[in-house]
């Protein structure tokens, strides 16, 4: 149980970068689509890229904090279980 979760913690390392990149990509794609069917002068595209950057950093930090909180809760639970059963 604990070993598996320690492996899964390694996921945190690439989480932030990929989240930011995926947000920028999705926002850029949406902006490009809107831009193509409205004014076709790249203004909305650039604005939506800015939105994507802000959203990427916001969502990335939120996700990181949530994951860290989750793992810390699990670690505390494991510690309690161990001290309860082994009484060491």
């Amino acid at each position: 149980m604990k070993g598996l979760r320690d492996f899964a913690k390694l996921n945190l390392i690439t989480a932030f970068g990929t989240t930011v990149l995926a947000n920028i990509a999705v926002a850029g794609f949406i902006g490009w689509l809107i831009d193509k069917y409205t004014f076709n002068n790249r203004v909305i595209f650039v604005i939506s890229l800015f939105f994507g950057t802000i959203s990427g950093i916001y969502n990335g930090v939120r996700e990181l904090l949530k994951e860290a909180e989750k793992y810390e809760k699990f670690d505390k639970k494991d510690d309690n279980d161990n001290s309860g059963s082994h009484s060491s």
Binding site: A22, N23, A27, S55, Y58, N59
Partner: peptide, 14 residues
């Protein structure tokens, strides 16, 4: 709202 929308849509991509 736009941040949440983009963040949700970006989840499957990443």
């Amino acid at each position: 709202m736009p941040m949440n929308l983009i963040g949700e849509l970006a989840k499957p991509i990443s």
